[in-house]
Amino acid sequence: MAAHVTTPGSVEPKMWMGGIEPMKASYGKLMMWFFLISDTFTFSALLVSYGYQRFSFPAYLGDFADFKFSNLYWPIPERVYEAVPFLHGMSLPLVFVGIMTFILIASSVTMVLAVEAGHRMDRAGVEKYMLWTILGGFTFLGCQAWEWSHFIHGTDTGSVFKVIENGVEVTKTVFGANLTENQYGPPAFADFFFFITGFHGTHVFSGVILNILIFFRAATGFYDKRGSYEMVEKVGLYWHFVDLVWVFVFTFFYLV
Protein backbone atom coordinates (compact mmCIF):
# COMPACT_ATOMS: atom_id res chain seq x y z
CA MET A 1 0.00 0.00 0.00
CA ALA A 2 1.09 3.51 -0.80
CA ALA A 3 0.80 4.53 2.85
CA HIS A 4 3.90 2.49 3.75
CA VAL A 5 6.12 4.36 1.32
CA THR A 6 7.50 7.47 2.96
CA THR A 7 9.43 9.78 0.75
CA PRO A 8 10.80 12.89 2.40
CA GLY A 9 8.55 15.85 1.72
CA SER A 10 5.61 13.73 0.42
CA VAL A 11 2.08 14.70 1.48
CA GLU A 12 -0.11 12.60 3.75
CA PRO A 13 -2.61 10.56 1.68
CA LYS A 14 -6.09 12.07 1.79
CA MET A 15 -9.49 10.62 0.96
CA TRP A 16 -9.73 11.59 -2.71
CA MET A 17 -6.06 11.96 -3.64
CA GLY A 18 -5.54 8.40 -4.84
CA GLY A 19 -3.58 5.57 -3.26
CA ILE A 20 -6.32 4.69 -0.76
CA GLU A 21 -9.73 3.07 -1.15
CA PRO A 22 -12.38 5.70 -0.30
CA MET A 23 -15.14 3.18 0.45
CA LYS A 24 -12.75 0.57 1.90
CA ALA A 25 -13.54 -1.66 -1.08
CA SER A 26 -11.25 -2.44 -4.00
CA TYR A 27 -11.81 -0.95 -7.43
CA GLY A 28 -13.09 -4.25 -8.87
CA LYS A 29 -15.57 -4.79 -6.06
CA LEU A 30 -16.91 -1.24 -6.34
CA MET A 31 -17.35 -1.60 -10.09
CA MET A 32 -19.19 -4.89 -9.59
CA TRP A 33 -21.54 -3.13 -7.17
CA PHE A 34 -22.20 -0.31 -9.63
CA PHE A 35 -22.75 -2.77 -12.45
CA LEU A 36 -25.27 -4.57 -10.25
CA ILE A 37 -27.06 -1.27 -9.61
CA SER A 38 -27.47 -0.78 -13.37
CA ASP A 39 -28.68 -4.37 -13.68
CA THR A 40 -31.17 -3.69 -10.88
CA PHE A 41 -32.64 -0.95 -13.05
CA THR A 42 -32.96 -3.30 -16.02
CA PHE A 43 -34.76 -5.97 -14.03
CA SER A 44 -36.90 -3.34 -12.29
CA ALA A 45 -37.95 -2.02 -15.69
CA LEU A 46 -39.01 -5.51 -16.78
CA LEU A 47 -40.89 -6.35 -13.58
CA VAL A 48 -42.54 -2.94 -13.27
CA SER A 49 -43.74 -3.04 -16.87
CA TYR A 50 -45.25 -6.43 -16.03
CA GLY A 51 -47.11 -4.72 -13.18
CA TYR A 52 -48.14 -1.94 -15.56
CA GLN A 53 -49.64 -4.43 -18.04
CA ARG A 54 -51.35 -6.32 -15.26
CA PHE A 55 -52.91 -3.17 -13.83
CA SER A 56 -54.19 -2.12 -17.25
CA PHE A 57 -55.84 -5.52 -17.81
CA PRO A 58 -58.95 -6.98 -16.11
CA ALA A 59 -58.25 -9.36 -13.23
CA TYR A 60 -60.13 -12.63 -12.74
CA LEU A 61 -62.90 -11.87 -10.25
CA GLY A 62 -64.73 -15.19 -10.04
CA ASP A 63 -64.28 -18.10 -7.67
CA PHE A 64 -60.81 -19.71 -7.57
CA ALA A 65 -62.22 -23.21 -8.15
CA ASP A 66 -64.11 -22.14 -11.31
CA PHE A 67 -61.06 -20.53 -12.90
CA LYS A 68 -60.62 -21.23 -16.62
CA PHE A 69 -57.94 -19.84 -18.91
CA SER A 70 -59.21 -16.92 -20.97
CA ASN A 71 -57.61 -14.20 -23.05
CA LEU A 72 -60.08 -11.70 -21.56
CA TYR A 73 -58.51 -11.52 -18.10
CA TRP A 74 -55.11 -12.01 -16.47
CA PRO A 75 -54.54 -15.63 -15.32
CA ILE A 76 -54.03 -16.77 -11.71
CA PRO A 77 -50.36 -17.88 -11.65
CA GLU A 78 -51.09 -20.89 -9.40
CA ARG A 79 -53.18 -22.35 -12.21
CA VAL A 80 -50.54 -21.71 -14.87
CA TYR A 81 -47.54 -23.19 -13.09
CA GLU A 82 -48.78 -26.47 -11.71
CA ALA A 83 -46.81 -29.05 -13.72
CA VAL A 84 -43.90 -31.08 -12.35
CA PRO A 85 -41.60 -33.38 -14.39
CA PHE A 86 -42.49 -37.12 -14.28
CA LEU A 87 -45.86 -36.31 -12.68
CA HIS A 88 -47.87 -35.78 -15.83
CA GLY A 89 -51.43 -34.57 -15.50
CA MET A 90 -51.24 -33.89 -11.77
CA SER A 91 -52.10 -30.44 -10.46
CA LEU A 92 -49.22 -29.41 -8.20
CA PRO A 93 -49.36 -25.62 -8.14
CA LEU A 94 -46.04 -23.81 -7.64
CA VAL A 95 -44.26 -26.99 -6.48
CA PHE A 96 -41.71 -27.03 -9.29
CA VAL A 97 -40.96 -23.32 -9.05
CA GLY A 98 -40.54 -23.85 -5.30
CA ILE A 99 -37.90 -26.50 -5.97
CA MET A 100 -36.14 -24.09 -8.33
CA THR A 101 -36.17 -21.38 -5.65
CA PHE A 102 -34.65 -23.80 -3.15
CA ILE A 103 -31.89 -24.79 -5.62
CA LEU A 104 -30.95 -21.17 -6.22
CA ILE A 105 -30.90 -20.26 -2.50
CA ALA A 106 -28.78 -23.36 -1.76
CA SER A 107 -26.31 -22.46 -4.51
CA SER A 108 -26.07 -18.95 -3.05
CA VAL A 109 -25.10 -20.50 0.28
CA THR A 110 -22.37 -22.64 -1.28
CA MET A 111 -21.13 -19.55 -3.12
CA VAL A 112 -20.79 -17.53 0.09
CA LEU A 113 -19.05 -20.51 1.71
CA ALA A 114 -16.57 -20.48 -1.19
CA VAL A 115 -15.96 -16.77 -0.56
CA GLU A 116 -15.40 -17.52 3.13
CA ALA A 117 -12.94 -20.33 2.27
CA GLY A 118 -11.16 -17.86 -0.01
CA HIS A 119 -10.65 -15.47 2.90
CA ARG A 120 -8.76 -18.27 4.70
CA MET A 121 -6.74 -19.05 1.52
CA ASP A 122 -8.25 -22.54 1.70
CA ARG A 123 -7.91 -23.67 -1.90
CA ALA A 124 -9.60 -27.07 -1.41
CA GLY A 125 -12.58 -25.39 0.26
CA VAL A 126 -12.97 -22.90 -2.60
CA GLU A 127 -12.82 -25.74 -5.15
CA LYS A 128 -15.39 -27.84 -3.29
CA TYR A 129 -17.92 -25.05 -2.80
CA MET A 130 -17.44 -23.64 -6.32
CA LEU A 131 -18.24 -27.08 -7.74
CA TRP A 132 -21.45 -27.24 -5.67
CA THR A 133 -22.38 -23.75 -6.86
CA ILE A 134 -21.78 -24.69 -10.50
CA LEU A 135 -23.88 -27.83 -10.04
CA GLY A 136 -26.70 -25.76 -8.51
CA GLY A 137 -26.53 -23.32 -11.42
CA PHE A 138 -26.76 -26.06 -14.03
CA THR A 139 -29.62 -27.74 -12.17
CA PHE A 140 -31.53 -24.48 -12.07
CA LEU A 141 -30.98 -23.97 -15.81
CA GLY A 142 -32.16 -27.52 -16.50
CA CYS A 143 -35.33 -26.90 -14.48
CA GLN A 144 -35.93 -23.69 -16.37
CA ALA A 145 -35.48 -25.44 -19.72
CA TRP A 146 -38.14 -27.96 -18.69
CA GLU A 147 -40.47 -25.22 -17.48
CA TRP A 148 -40.10 -23.31 -20.75
CA SER A 149 -40.67 -26.44 -22.79
CA HIS A 150 -43.85 -27.22 -20.86
CA PHE A 151 -45.05 -23.60 -21.12
CA ILE A 152 -44.44 -23.56 -24.90
CA HIS A 153 -46.09 -26.92 -25.61
CA GLY A 154 -49.03 -26.35 -23.28
CA THR A 155 -51.52 -28.68 -21.61
CA ASP A 156 -53.08 -31.77 -23.21
CA THR A 157 -56.44 -30.14 -23.87
CA GLY A 158 -55.36 -26.59 -24.71
CA SER A 159 -57.78 -23.67 -24.33
CA VAL A 160 -60.65 -22.66 -26.60
CA PHE A 161 -60.37 -18.93 -27.30
CA LYS A 162 -62.05 -16.42 -29.59
CA VAL A 163 -59.21 -14.71 -31.45
CA ILE A 164 -59.00 -12.22 -34.30
CA GLU A 165 -57.31 -13.72 -37.37
CA ASN A 166 -56.94 -11.62 -40.54
CA GLY A 167 -59.58 -9.25 -39.22
CA VAL A 168 -62.15 -12.00 -38.59
CA GLU A 169 -63.11 -13.36 -35.19
CA VAL A 170 -62.62 -17.13 -35.08
CA THR A 171 -62.96 -19.72 -32.31
CA LYS A 172 -59.96 -22.00 -32.05
CA THR A 173 -58.09 -24.21 -29.63
CA VAL A 174 -54.76 -22.75 -28.57
CA PHE A 175 -52.02 -25.08 -27.32
CA GLY A 176 -49.19 -23.64 -25.28
CA ALA A 177 -47.71 -20.21 -25.76
CA ASN A 178 -45.43 -18.21 -28.00
CA LEU A 179 -44.98 -14.48 -28.48
CA THR A 180 -48.32 -14.06 -30.29
CA GLU A 181 -50.54 -16.83 -28.91
CA ASN A 182 -51.04 -17.94 -25.32
CA GLN A 183 -53.38 -20.62 -24.00
CA TYR A 184 -53.01 -19.40 -20.40
CA GLY A 185 -54.27 -15.85 -20.90
CA PRO A 186 -53.54 -12.68 -22.85
CA PRO A 187 -50.48 -12.90 -25.17
CA ALA A 188 -48.76 -10.18 -23.09
CA PHE A 189 -48.64 -12.59 -20.15
CA ALA A 190 -46.58 -15.11 -22.14
CA ASP A 191 -44.38 -12.33 -23.55
CA PHE A 192 -43.48 -11.21 -20.05
CA PHE A 193 -42.89 -14.79 -18.96
CA PHE A 194 -40.39 -15.29 -21.80
CA PHE A 195 -38.66 -11.94 -21.34
CA ILE A 196 -38.38 -11.89 -17.54
CA THR A 197 -37.49 -15.53 -16.87
CA GLY A 198 -35.39 -15.55 -20.06
CA PHE A 199 -33.39 -12.50 -19.03
CA HIS A 200 -32.91 -13.97 -15.57
CA GLY A 201 -31.91 -17.34 -17.07
CA THR A 202 -29.33 -15.59 -19.26
CA HIS A 203 -27.88 -14.08 -16.10
CA VAL A 204 -27.77 -17.48 -14.43
CA PHE A 205 -26.02 -18.89 -17.50
CA SER A 206 -23.33 -16.19 -17.57
CA GLY A 207 -22.98 -16.63 -13.80
CA VAL A 208 -22.30 -20.34 -14.26
CA ILE A 209 -19.67 -19.54 -16.93
CA LEU A 210 -17.97 -17.08 -14.56
CA ASN A 211 -18.12 -19.63 -11.74
CA ILE A 212 -16.46 -22.25 -13.94
CA LEU A 213 -13.73 -19.75 -14.79
CA ILE A 214 -13.17 -18.99 -11.09
CA PHE A 215 -13.12 -22.70 -10.26
CA PHE A 216 -10.53 -23.32 -12.98
CA ARG A 217 -8.31 -20.48 -11.81
CA ALA A 218 -8.59 -21.55 -8.16
CA ALA A 219 -7.85 -25.19 -9.03
CA THR A 220 -4.75 -24.27 -11.05
CA GLY A 221 -3.41 -22.22 -8.15
CA PHE A 222 -3.76 -18.86 -9.87
CA TYR A 223 -5.19 -17.14 -6.78
CA ASP A 224 -2.61 -18.74 -4.48
CA LYS A 225 0.11 -17.24 -6.64
CA ARG A 226 -1.68 -13.89 -6.62
CA GLY A 227 -2.01 -14.10 -2.85
CA SER A 228 -5.71 -13.17 -2.86
CA TYR A 229 -9.02 -14.89 -3.57
CA GLU A 230 -10.89 -11.62 -4.03
CA MET A 231 -12.11 -12.64 -7.51
CA VAL A 232 -14.27 -15.29 -5.83
CA GLU A 233 -15.87 -12.50 -3.83
CA LYS A 234 -16.57 -10.35 -6.92
CA VAL A 235 -18.16 -13.18 -8.87
CA GLY A 236 -19.96 -14.15 -5.66
CA LEU A 237 -21.60 -10.70 -5.62
CA TYR A 238 -22.91 -11.34 -9.13
CA TRP A 239 -24.19 -14.80 -8.22
CA HIS A 240 -26.04 -13.52 -5.13
CA PHE A 241 -27.56 -10.78 -7.25
CA VAL A 242 -28.97 -13.43 -9.59
CA ASP A 243 -30.50 -15.12 -6.53
CA LEU A 244 -31.85 -11.77 -5.35
CA VAL A 245 -33.55 -11.12 -8.70
CA TRP A 246 -35.13 -14.57 -8.55
CA VAL A 247 -36.62 -13.73 -5.12
CA PHE A 248 -38.39 -10.77 -6.76
CA VAL A 249 -39.39 -12.70 -9.89
CA PHE A 250 -40.78 -15.47 -7.67
CA THR A 251 -42.94 -13.04 -5.70
CA PHE A 252 -44.19 -10.80 -8.48
CA PHE A 253 -44.52 -13.34 -11.25
CA TYR A 254 -45.49 -16.57 -9.50
CA LEU A 255 -47.11 -15.55 -6.21
CA VAL A 256 -49.19 -12.37 -6.58
Binding site: M23, K24, A25, V112, H240, L244, V247
Partner: peptide
Protein backbone atom coordinates in the same frame (compact mmCIF):
# COMPACT_ATOMS: atom_id res chain seq x y z
CA UNK B 1 -41.52 -10.98 3.09
CA UNK B 2 -39.74 -10.33 -0.21
CA UNK B 3 -38.09 -7.21 1.19
CA UNK B 4 -36.99 -9.12 4.30
CA UNK B 5 -35.47 -11.84 2.09
CA UNK B 6 -33.76 -9.19 -0.06
CA UNK B 7 -32.37 -7.61 3.14
CA UNK B 8 -30.77 -10.90 4.20
CA UNK B 9 -29.35 -11.70 0.74
CA UNK B 10 -27.88 -8.23 0.21
CA UNK B 11 -26.88 -7.67 3.84
CA UNK B 12 -25.36 -11.06 4.71
CA UNK B 13 -24.57 -12.93 1.48
CA UNK B 14 -23.43 -9.84 -0.41
CA UNK B 15 -21.90 -8.54 2.80
CA UNK B 16 -23.25 -5.01 2.30
CA UNK B 17 -24.29 -4.71 5.95
CA UNK B 18 -20.61 -4.90 6.95
CA UNK B 19 -19.24 -2.47 4.34
CA UNK B 20 -18.37 1.20 4.83
CA UNK B 21 -21.36 3.51 5.38
CA UNK B 22 -20.62 5.47 2.21
CA UNK B 23 -20.76 2.28 0.13
Amino acid sequence: MTIVKAFYIVGEFMHLKHEAKSL
